[in-house]
Design a protein around this nucleic acid. Structure first.
Length: 638
RNA sequence: GCCGAUGUAGCUCAGUUGAUAGAGCGUUCGACUUGUAAUCGAAUGGUCGGGGGUUUGAGUCCCUCCAUCGGCUCCA
């Protein structure tokens, strides 16, 4: 019989062949790496029989579906291993995830790291047995009976949500309820590693029982696991918490969990970003404002924060009146807007603030600079007419992208988040706002994903996720359209016809949080920041203390040219001082000794690039100054 | 908040079955006066996260609080 392959070629195979037979007919190599098949658009097991004229694609690990199936099967092996070792463990769910898989278990005692090793060993043994994954179609009743006899209550709960006849997958005597498909047999897994144990609520809800989750990863080749572990290690080296300590940028203290302390070097970095952002905003027509951190509780009732955001807010009392510490800057900006009358001629009005906000985060979710309780938003609010919305939003999008590019982020993802359950305003207004945002994205041909229910309580939003060098994605920028606040605060402007009308408000931030953005930057660059952001840009290394005076001269000229430099006066060998500067990831070093003193030059060395020979002192400093600008870096241009 | 792990010198980490707290790096001092990723020597450094308890005796065992780390709807 004939079946069609993805390249539209036909292939003739024997009657009653399975997808696996087809893979073998195409090439033995493919049959060894085959994970599953797609028959007429449907993902299936390789054991599925083919029919005349079927459109068939063999799925391998190389595709995202292939990985997902491979890892899902791995999770079944994990579950089988656990139940062979701990027969009383009840199984919940075990999906594949972005990198690997997990399985949730209900056990009396949480797993220990030693258990993890034992389980991994058992799983590897199961893999070695090359057990076939067999699909069984059963009736809902049969499935129910099976799991009821085994006391698998979580599976019974899952069964309730399944319409039609459920399918089971069998490995030896072990069975799991599963939609499939699965890999043909456990033997194609060549590398299997369990990574961590964690508590996880059944169905993610704090109201449910906490289960024990085991995370793992697997591959069809050992070398792929090695590579994956190497990447994990690389990511650990780039951890901003580690870099922050090593480079003396910031610290955290028990005296204030989630409140970062910025050290002198960190402050230079912080201010470089802040100065750049401020000047770009002013250039783009924003006007800077500053609003108080503590404001009367009544204001937060009016804004809706007290209703919808109270859980995340801190309160304090001033002369018996309750005040809130601001979690957002919008109410403050609204008060400035209302302080005077406005005409359509002023629009768009753009208020911009480096707003220091405090938000209560649960103790367990704090994470370095990524998740803190106090941070500075690069926040702005635009007030405009409804007609101006589209233009304004598209301007903001251009602005955001230009700024990201300066920091070396060229790749990003856009998400449109819609009305959450916890919202204020009418549904009609929400629909209108959501459509307006969508229209802008469509018109500009941006690719975007819809994120249902993830909008702010006062309006839908467009979020920007930037991708770092390790291809991880971070949410930063946000643009939120708001018809509610203008209503609640009774904002007005005089239109061309002399009538008082209600303006529209757009909330937006680029970095989101300065702190978080700095964390992302540090991980992106692995701490080796571009010249313009480096706290110390130039390390001056005298060969011996006979040349200290010359070093001081270099330092003076550098300082006058706006270069941040330091001299290493220590009575150490050059190699020692160089190593120290390299470890601190200082972008540029100059060595001054006999030769340099005589010729009024410096020997130049760039971080990670080694010795670059000598240059006349003044020429070198002015070259450095040329590259000491946002978006530039000496490394690519020397 | 919940589950688990962790908390020892400024940093990175050792510390057996409970009995006088260790190393390397850093810092300080001295010697060396150094040519592109660690010169040598000496000194300094600790309420063992806080509090409580068991014990003749606790870094080690128990309780409690705090902080940090990995997780907590990627759904059969």
């Amino acid at each position: 019989m004939n079946v069609k392959l993805p390249d539209n070629k036909n292939i003739n195979i024997e009657q009653n062949s399975t997808a696996f037979d087809l893979a073998r007919a195409i090439s033995p190599k493919l049959s060894r790496s085959a994970v599953a098949a797609r028959i007429n658009g449907e993902l299936t097991d390789l054991s599925r029989s083919l029919n005349e004229n079927d459109q068939v694609e063999i799925i391998t690990f190389d595709t995202s579906e292939g990985k997902s199936i491979f890892w899902h099967s791995s999770s079944h092996i994990l579950a089988q291993a656990v139940q062979e070792l701990f027969p009383s463990a009840r199984i919940a769910i075990g999906p594949s995830i972005e990198n690997g898989f997990y399985y949730d278990f209900d056990v009396e005692k949480p797993f220990t790291p030693q258990d993890l090793e034992t389980i991994e060993k058992k799983a590897k043994e199961i893999i070695g047995r090359k057990i076939e994954f067999k699909r069984e179609e059963v009736s809902a009743k049969e499935a129910y009976e099976y799991f009821r006899n085994k006391g698998e209550n979580y599976k019974l709960e899952l069964l309730e949500d399944i319409t039609g006849s459920p399918s089971m997958y069998v490995q030896d005597s072990w069975k799991d309820l599963c939609r499939g498909p699965h890999i043909p047999n456990t033997g194609i897994i060549k590398a299997f590693k369990l990574l961590s144990i964690a508590g996880a609520y059944w169905r993610g809800s704090e109201k449910n029982k906490m289960l024990q989750r085991i995370y793992g990863i697997s591959f069809p080749k050992q070398s792929m696991l090695d590579e994956y572990l190497r990447l994990l290690e690389e990511a650990q080296k780039r951890d901003h918490r580690k870099l922050g300590k090593e480079l003396d940028l910031f610290s955290f203290h028990q005296e204030g969990a989630g409140f970062p302390f910025w050290h002198p070097y960190g402050m230079v970095l912080y201010n470089q970003i802040l100065d750049f952002s401020r000047s770009e905003h002013l250039r783009a027509g924003y006007r800077e404002v500053k609003t108080p951190i503590i404001l009367n509780e009544e204001l937060w009732h009016r804004s809706g924060h007290w209703d919808k955001y109270r859980e995340n807010m801190y309160f304090t009392t001033i002369e018996e009146t309750v005040h809130a510490v601001k979690p957002m800057n919008c109410p403050g900006h609204l008060l400035i807007y209302k302080n005077s009358g406005h005409s359509y001629r002023e629009f768009p009005i753009r208020f911009f603030e480096f707003g220091l906000v405090h938000r209560h985060e649960k103790a367990g979710v704090l994470h370095g600079l990524f998740r803190v309780r106090q941070f500075t938003q690069d926040d702005a609010h635009l007030f405009c007419t409804p007609e101006q919305i589209e233009n304004q939003i598209s301007d903001v999008i251009d602005f955001i992208m230009r700024i990201y590019k300066t920091f070396g982020f060229e790749d990003y993802k856009i998400e449109l988040s819609t009305r959450p359950e916890n919202y204020i305003g009418s549904i009609e207004i929400w629909d209108k706002a959501e459509k307006a945002l969508q229209d802008v994205l469509e018109k500009q041909n941006f690719e975007y994903q819809i994120n249902p229910g993830d909008g702010a309580f006062y309006g839908p939003k467009i979020d920007f996720h930037i991708k770092d060098i390790l291809n991880r994605s971070w949410q930063c920028g946000t643009i939120q359209l708001d018809f509610s606040m203008p209503e609640r605060f009774d904002l007005e402007y005089t239109d061309v016809d002399g009538q008082l009308k209600r303006p529209v408000m757009i909330h937006r931030a680029l970095f989101g949080s300065m702190e978080r953005f700095i964390g992302i930057l540090l991980e992106h660059y692995g701490g080796a920041l571009p010249l313009w952001l480096s706290p110390v840009q130039l390390k001056i290394i005298p060969i011996s203390d006979r040349f200290n005076e010359n070093a001081i001269k270099v330092h003076r000229i550098a300082t006058e040219t706006g270069i941040r430099s330091e001299i290493d006066y220590r009575s150490e060998k050059v190699g020692y001082k160089i190593r120290d500067a390299e470890v601190k990831k200082i972008p540029c070093m100059v060595i001054v000794g006999e030769k340099e003193q005589e010729s009024d030059s410096v020997s130049v060395r760039l971080h990670g690039k080694g010795d670059l020979g000598s240059r006349p002192l003044k020429e070198f400093i002015s070259l450095l100054a040329d590259y000491n600008k946002p978006g530039l870096d000496i490394n690519n241009n020397f």
